[in-house]
């Protein structure tokens, strides 16, 4: 069943120099128990699109969409009080920098218990027992002792676990993890990713994993959505995306991976991501695409069908008739 359904989501920021489109006509479906990765380079709108879903964007953001619904409920037109009952309970999010979302003035135990009090109305004793249980679940050793620690007394990896413990405290149906391991070393990253995957296995929650790391995508995700300059340019099951990318941007990104290198010099993508003032009229990737022609530069390509990974491209790669070559 579809848990989160997004149709035609656009986010524009009012800036001193005019409106800036950070998210552009994005569609997305996430089902129960599914792991979806959203991948893209920095500034491609990954965080903003999910912050829009969570209702966490500043007032300068203008959000429009045909539909944003969670578990059958319309998130867009929901009154703030009803929204607060869902956010942090059924729909939870963790961020790249645990220190920016943990309050330095309170112990981590107090913070997690506060979430349990607010959402689940648990009494003091039940809160404590559940907090200990959560810390154990996310692999924090010596939970009783760690509950009384302040964030600055814990390592980055431990704080990230505290964040995860807080996010899953109320057994969310969907967890959005925004670059949860980007600031961490690979050995800790591996532990955190294993933890998230096993939580999904145990609780059946859906997981949206935002990342820029193709390795993390390959090892963790089931389905992958690729974003470029605010648009979703392709979406495929993980193996298909890596084996037969349809959008030239996806293909170019995969080619640029040092670990896939076949020569001393790596394939590169010329040019830079378009900004506020040089947004192309046609395909957003056309100025950097080696296949682009006049049509691509003039007309924005609409998304193709599921069989072609919803690619926003007039000349998709690895199609049935081109796969042989």
């Amino acid at each position: 069943m579809t848990l989160l359904r997004i149709r035609n989501l656009t986010v524009e920021f009012a800036t001193a120099s005019g409106a800036f489109r950070a998210v552009d006509s994005v569609d997305q479906d996430i089902g129960n128990g599914e792991i979806l990765a959203i991948v893209g380079e920095s500034g491609s709108g990954k965080s903003v699109s999910m912050l829009a879903v969570m209702g966490l964007l500043p007032w300068t953001a203008k959000i429009t969409a045909d539909e944003v619904s969670f578990d059958g409920q319309d998130l867009l037109n929901m009154d703030p009080r009803a929204r607060r009952r869902i956010i942090g309970k059924d729909l939870a999010m963790i961020f790249q920098e645990p220190m920016s979302s943990l309050n330095p003035c309170f112990t981590v135990g107090w913070q997690i218990k506060e979430a349990l009090r607010f959402h689940l109305k648990m009494d003091r004793k039940a809160r404590h027992a559940r907090a200990v249980e959560l810390f154990e679940q996310v692999g924090i050793p010596d939970p009783e002792k760690r509950l009384s620690a302040f964030p600055h007394q814990l390592s980055g990896g431990m704080n990230q676990r505290v964040m995860i413990a807080m996010a899953i405290a109320c057994k969310p149906k969907l967890l959005i993890a925004d670059e949860p391991t980007t600031a961490l070393d690979v050995t800790i990253q591996a532990q955190i990713l294993d933890l998230l995957a096993s939580l999904r296995d145990e609780t059946g929650m859906g997981l949206v994993l935002i990342t820029h790391d193709m390795g993390v995508v390959a090892e963790t995700a089931e389905r992958v959505s690729v974003q470029y300059a605010g648009q979703k340019v392709e979406e495929q099951p993980v193996a298909d995306l890596f084996n037969t990318p349809h959008h030239p941007y996806t293909a170019a990104l995969l080619d640029a991976l040092p670990e896939r290198a076949t020569a001393r010099l790596l394939p590169t993508i010329p040019g830079v991501v378009p900004g506020q003032f040089d947004r192309p009229a046609g395909c957003l990737f056309s100025p950097r695409c080696k296949f682009a022609d006049a049509k691509c530069k003039a007309t924005p390509p609409p998304p193709l069908g599921t069989d072609l990974g919803h690619a926003r491209c007039f000349y998709p790669l690895n199609t049935a008739d081109r796969i042989a070559s």
């Binding site: 690979v186 050995t187 591996a190 390795g215 390959a218 090892e219 890596f242």
Partner: peptide, 15 residues
């Protein structure tokens, strides 16, 4: 251990 923890951009790879 470090090598085994490094994610590979190959969904088919054995973990």
């Amino acid at each position: 251990a470090l090598l085994s923890a490094t994610p590979q951009a190959n969904p088919g790879a054995e973990k």
